[in-house]
C-alpha cells in the first residue's frame, strides 16, 4: 500500500513536471503578463515634440510602453523615466523598436513646450503626449488608470494621483505586460530589458488577420 502510494506520488510528480515543462515552452515574463485582459492600444493625443495630433497608427509595429505622469511629479515619474531610459540604453540598437509614451495627467500645467523639454532630458525614445480632457479621460478609462488632479487650496498643496505601472503593448498593439517595479527602490532593469527585447523579437503577425487588425 505504502509503495503504491509512493508510486502514485511519483507519477503525480512526473506528470506535474511534464505539464510545467509543456507550459514552460512559453517561458515566464519578468513583468506581469496581462495578455487578453486589456484592449489593444488606441488613443488620440497631441505629441509634445512636434505638436502633432498622433494616434496608435503612428507607432505601428513598435513596442509601446505607456506611462501616465506629470512633469511636476516629485519622485515617482522621474524615477520611472530614468529607469526606463537606462533600460533603453541597455538595449542598444533594439531600443529603436521601442516607443515610450509619457501621457500627462495634468494638462493644465504641462503645456506642450514644458512636456517636450521634460521628456527630452531622459531619452530620445520618450514622447510626451498631452490630451484634451476628453482624450485623457477616454485613455485612462480604457486602461483602468486612476488619476485625479486637486488644485491647490489655502491649506493643501497641489496634488496629483496617478497609476504607477507601465503598460506595454506589442508590435500588433495588443496589451501584453504591466511593469510595476521601475518606480520602486528595487527596479528590475535587467528583467524589463529582456522582456522588451523578447517582445521586439516576436514575429509580427502577418497575413490577412494582421491586415484586418490594422484596418480596424
Amino acid at each position: 500500500m505504502m509503495l503504491t502510494r509512493r508510486g502514485l506520488l511519483r507519477l503525480g510528480g512526473a506528470l506535474g513536471a511534464a505539464c510545467l515543462a509543456g507550459c514552460g515552452d512559453r517561458q515566464r515574463w519578468h513583468a506581469l503578463d496581462i495578455a487578453g485582459t486589456l484592449p489593444p492600444l488606441q488613443f488620440q493625443m497631441t505629441r509634445a515634440r512636434d505638436q502633432r495630433l498622433v494616434s496608435e497608427r503612428d507607432y505601428r509595429g513598435q513596442i509601446v510602453a505607456l506611462y501616465f505622469g506629470y512633469t511636476f511629479c516629485p519622485d515617482l515619474c522621474p524615477t520611472t523615466l530614468a529607469n526606463l531610459a537606462s533600460v533603453l540604453q541597455g538595449m542598444g540598437n533594439e531600443a529603436q523598436r521601442v516607443a515610450v509614451l509619457f501621457v500627462t495627467v495634468d494638462p493644465e500645467r504641462d503645456t506642450l513646450p514644458v512636456l517636450a523639454s521634460y521628456v527630452r532630458d531622459f531619452a530620445p525614445e520618450i514622447d510626451g503626449l498631452r490630451g484634451t480632457p476628453d482624450q485623457l479621460t477616454a485613455l485612462a478609462r480604457r486602461y483602468r488608470v486612476a488619476f485625479s488632479v486637486t488644485p491647490r487650496t489655502n491649506d493643501r498643496p497641489y496634488e496629483v494621483d496617478h497609476s504607477s505601472a507601465i503598460y506595454v503593448f506589442d508590435g500588433a498593439r495588443s496589451a501584453r505586460l504591466l511593469v510595476a517595479s521601475l518606480s520602486t527602490s528595487a527596479p528590475d532593469l535587467e528583467g524589463t530589458r529582456s522582456d522588451l527585447a523578447r517582445l521586439a523579437h516576436e514575429q509580427a503577425p502577418s497575413g490577412i488577420l494582421a491586415w484586418l487588425r490594422d484596418a480596424v
Binding site: 488608470v145 486612476a146 494621483d161 510595476a180
Partner: peptide, 12 residues
C-alpha cells in the same frame, strides 16, 4: 488584489 496598486488608487 494587486490591480488597485497597479492601476492606481482613488487616493493614496
Amino acid at each position: 488584489y494587486p490591480s488597485y496598486t497597479l492601476c492606481g488608487r482613488l487616493f493614496p
